[in-house]
Design a protein around this nucleic acid. Structure first.
Lengths: 135, 135
DNA sequence: CTGGATGCAAACGCTTTGCAAATAG
DNA sequence: CTATTTGCAAAGCGTTTGCATCCAG
């Protein structure tokens, strides 16, 4: 077993690059469009495969919203960060809870081990609060 | 405009009843199965329509996980509760964060208003930790 | 009666998968 | 050369929708 090599391909690189160019969560389809727009020929399925792989290997954060999956490079390998999502414009801001401790306590109180957790806060950002006047 | 009446039907009642009988989040399909099992003939589409309506009218909480939508009667108009979800057996336990305050602070620090938030904690429950021995 | 509600099945949108062709090592 | 990766298109999944029928008021 010669350690089934993970081959380095133009597409893998492209996906990784494109992810870095994003500063918000993107869907697979978004990323696929971005890639093709920038002249990189790549199949949608490949984008999905890459995104899944990267998520599994812990390099991508993933949130689900509105029935679709959004990915983002996991900048914080060491610290969970969560998000403040504007329900109107979709803007996302990373937030850090001051206290992860209670979570562990509560979990173990129920005999649970914690492998991951997600916290998504929905609301309106400043701009959209202003725009809320027109319904 | 004679206030387009919302008719009271056997199915509407059934869905509402069934929701009350659940003590965990359920998917539309789950609920549909439960209903048909209990002898109530109802279409899947109707369950979906009812669930959406109830969610819109603010009577149902909704979380998304694994690409599907789970609903639960919104018992806590007054207090958010979150969940401890076992990744193996799917068991769900309600947990209550000791401190919702920081959330509001962080949000307003970014100019956000908070309309809702979800916190889901994934891990393994005691039973499943024991069963983890077989891979 | 009348129009909202239902049931069915087809349509949908996002994601995954089968398989043959392409290509990295 | 060989096996991983890709691309395409078809399949899969949960959900929504069109339309004829049904039934509450």
């Amino acid at each position: 077993m010669t350690a089934s090599a993970s081959r380095k391909t133009r597409q893998k690189d492209a996906v990784w690059q494109a992810l870095h160019a994003q500063d918000d969560f993107v869907s697979a389809q978004d990323l696929h469009k971005v890639l093709n727009d920038s002249g990189c020929r790549i199949g949608l399925a490949t984008v999905y495969r890459r995104l899944n792989a990267l998520h599994l290997s812990g390099n991508l954060d993933c949130i689900e919203h509105g029935g679709l999956r959004l990915y983002r490079i996991c900048t914080a390998q060491r610290h969970h960060h969560h998000h403040l999502v504007c329900e109107s414009c979709g803007r996302t801001i990373e937030i850090t809870p001051p206290d992860d401790g209670w979570l562990q306590s509560v979990a173990s109180a129920h005999g649970f081990t914690v492998s991951s957790h997600t916290l998504e806060v929905y609301g309106l950002c400043g701009d959209c609060q202003a725009t809320q006047t027109d319904e």
